[in-house]
């Protein structure tokens, strides 16, 4: 039986009195594109940050391959992080570096300047940005172009696992579609395992192989994207139809 690439087991996380994760259990299989959906503030970002070690879980286990990710330190943690690429919600591009330097940031550890630049330009081309953008600074780019640069940086070193944090937030519908297509293409082409968090249902249908619904600090439902409409889960039904009435309480 194939082992999960990423496994979260009963992960808990609180911030002061606020319990955000109350026992998240989730398996992401190799080369699978898992999308975690859920309302704002339900702990989607905390879930992926727990995997990356950016947030330390209070309880539970996080496994990446055969490594206990939440306990990894030093060289073991560095080796673990080398497996990951991440596209942040706001791009999180380094303002002080040029576009190509952002994309080549990790590559520079093992490649010379010229070689890293060539590879960065190639990755930029892969996400639809010409070489004329390579020497610009992030602040000179539009939001959509910044997302593309973020995507190029995430895939630059051909990671085994890619995380996408709200990849289409703040983009117009057409640019959202372009980014969704790019994500689907690069994930399929690289054979990478992808974990995306979003509340954009268009993205879910374009990107996902499997979907997990996070609500109340736990995974309420998980299953193939094709079962989303017919699963009969009241949480999923309310969420995908965007209704205010249902088990998910909405503040008015």
């Amino acid at each position: 039986m194939t082992k999960p690439k990423i496994a979260l087991k009963d992960v808990h996380k609180s911030f002061g009195a606020k319990q955000v994760l109350r026992g998240v259990t989730l398996d992401v299989m190799p080369s699978e594109s898992m999308v975690v959906i859920g309302g704002s503030g339900t702990g989607k970002s905390i879930t992926i940050k727990s995997v990356l070690g950016l947030v330390k879980p209070d309880r539970g286990e996080v496994w990446v391959d055969d490594i206990r990710a939440d306990k990894a330190r030093g060289a073991r943690r560095d080796a673990l992080l080398d497996k990951f690429g991440m596209l942040f919600q706001g791009g999180a591009l380094f303002d002080s570096l040029k576009v190509w330097e952002n994309v080549a940031f990790r590559l520079r550890r093992r490649l010379g300047r010229d070689e890293a630049r060539d590879l960065a330009v190639e990755k930029l081309r892969r996400v639809g940005l010409g070489p004329e953008n390579a020497d610009l600074y992030p602040a000179e780019l539009s939001g959509g172009m910044q997302k593309r640069v973020g995507l190029a940086r995430a895939i630059a070193d051909d990671p085994e696992i890619i995380f996408f944090d709200e990849p289409t937030t703040g983009l117009d519908p057409i640019m959202s579609d372009v980014i969704n297509d790019l994500i689907r293409e690069v994930v399929t082409e690289m054979g990478a395992t992808a974990l995306t968090i979003t509340h954009d249902m268009t993205s879910v249908r374009r990107i996902a192989d499997k979907v997990a619904m996070l609500h109340g600090g736990v995974i309420q439902w998980t299953g193939p994207v094709d079962d989303l409409e017919t699963c009969g889960d009241p949480y999923i039904e309310q969420f995908i139809n965007g209704r205010a009435d249902g088990p998910i309480e909405a503040l008015r």
Binding site: L81, A92, F94
Partner: peptide
């Protein structure tokens, strides 16, 4: 502080730095 708020510091970590 701006790097913290815009997740650039988190991005550094994910880039193994």
């Amino acid at each position: 502080g701006t790097m913290r708020v815009t997740e650039q510091i988190d991005a550094l970590t994910t880039l193994s730095t």
